[in-house]
Design a protein around this nucleic acid. Structure first.
Lengths: 113, 113
DNA sequence: TTTATGCGATACCAAACGGTATCATGTCAA
DNA sequence: TTGACATGATACCGTTTGGTATCGCATAAA
């Protein structure tokens, strides 16, 4: 599919999973503990993330470890980067406002200007 | 919906539309000229983009001008920015390789490192 | 006014998506 | 070997999505 990373990022559950996996590798069961859906549903999300190159999974015994892959973000970062030329620094305040309004995950504290 | 910007970016047609509108405002008909689908389909995509705050539309006579809104990218940029901590500079080469492989739009010349 | 055109809205369809239930398989442990 | 358990795969279901066809409306032009 064209640019499967974008589709992988389109679902809020998958974005949450990425947050989890960026902290540490997890088996499918471990990821499931953070959600109310079934293991099969989580597995589907993991498959989409893997198709987008945002995570990798490899077996360890009978378990299956899922690892965050920062390199998968490259195409997304690059595509977004095209629009940097339209970015005005005075929008940073708006940035914060919108982000504060729409974020449901408060543990982000990096500011990048 | 939660973070509708991500869903707006998930479709390649919508990403192409964003590229177009970043160059100049367009009516729906003008946007249609760049695609083979019907006007109704294009209109749907524009509605999704507007719901995500990535474009705005306002009437001018009987026409409807669609304008690119850079500020809509703020939440996306911010969310992606969380993962900057996992970004390693030696991945930039990989970045370029992946981007070259998957890009179908060569008119990007900004480099950001 | 009359006509043509750009647009919005609706109804409708096929395919994809998010999710559950279920079964088969491989592996760890007793 | 036997049993428990984590996973993979499949079938299935309801909803959403991407798309078309069609209608009506408002506006620009004749």
């Amino acid at each position: 599919m064209s640019q499967p990373q974008f589709k992988a990022l389109a679902d809020p559950t998958r974005r949450d999973i990425l947050r989890l996996l960026s902290q540490q590798e997890m088996t499918i069961a471990q990821v499931c503990d953070h959600f109310t859906m079934t293991r099969a549903a989580v597995k589907k999300h993991l498959s989409v993330l893997e198709a987008g190159g945002l995570i990798s999974s490899h077996a360890r015994g009978r378990e299956c470890l899922n690892r965050f892959e920062p390199a998968g973000f490259a195409p997304v970062r690059d595509w977004i980067g095209f629009f940097d030329q339209f970015w005005d620094h005075h929008l940073s305040a708006l940035n914060s406002a919108i982000e504060k309004d729409q974020s449901d995950d408060p543990d982000r504290d990096q500011n990048k200007d």
